[in-house]
Simulated assay, not measured.
Amino acid sequence: MSKTFTKAEVAKHKDEKEGMYIIIDSGVYDITGFLDEHPGGSKILKRMAGKDSTKQFWKYHNDKVLEKYGAKLKVGTLAETAKL
């Protein structure tokens, strides 16, 4: 069963000690072990850790990237929040 995270919980995961999580669409991904593999380097991943990276991700990647790496990096989903 997949875990559900709030944005505040994801925000706590912004360094390697706590694990580095990002949000893409409604998925939460642990990128801690992917830092050295990222073709664009680890710097951008470290800068986006703990944040919603949807806009930046889709700007530079297509859906094949998420298909290739998503399953092994996904740790949960983002909890729905009421929109007023």
Rank of each mutant, 00 (worst) to 15 (best):
M48T: 03
S42V: 05
K74Y: 05
L73I: 05
G19C: 15
Y69I: 15
T32A: 12
M20Y: 08
T32K: 09
I31A: 13
M48N: 02
G76I: 15
L45H: 09
K46E: 10
H61A: 00
D15R: 12
A49M: 04
E37K: 14
K74I: 05
G76E: 12
P39E: 06
G76M: 09
H38T: 11
S53P: 00
L35V: 14
K83Q: 14
K55A: 08
Y29N: 07
K68Y: 07
V28M: 04
D25A: 06
G50N: 00
R47W: 14
I22R: 09
K43D: 10
V10Y: 04
K68W: 07
K14S: 02
T4H: 05
G27I: 06
G50L: 00
S42K: 14
Y21M: 10
H61Y: 03
K68A: 00
A71C: 01
M48Q: 10
S42G: 07
W58H: 13
G27Q: 03
G41Q: 09
R47D: 13
L35P: 12
K46D: 12
I23P: 09
K43Y: 01
A49G: 03
T54M: 02
E9N: 05
K72F: 07
P39T: 04
G76K: 15
G70A: 10
N62E: 03
T81H: 07
H13N: 15
A71H: 03
R47N: 14
T6Q: 06
Y21K: 09
E80A: 11
T54I: 01
G50D: 00
I31R: 08
D25M: 13
D15L: 15
K64N: 07
D30W: 08
M48E: 01
A79G: 05
Y21E: 06
A11K: 08
S42P: 05
G41I: 12
G41C: 13
V75E: 06
K7D: 03
L84K: 10
K43A: 14
Q56D: 10
I22C: 11
E37S: 10
K17S: 12
K14L: 03
I31Y: 05
L45P: 02
F34R: 11
A8G: 03
H13A: 12
L78N: 07
A82Q: 09
K64V: 07
G19N: 06
F57G: 01
H38P: 10
G41S: 14
G40T: 06
L66R: 07
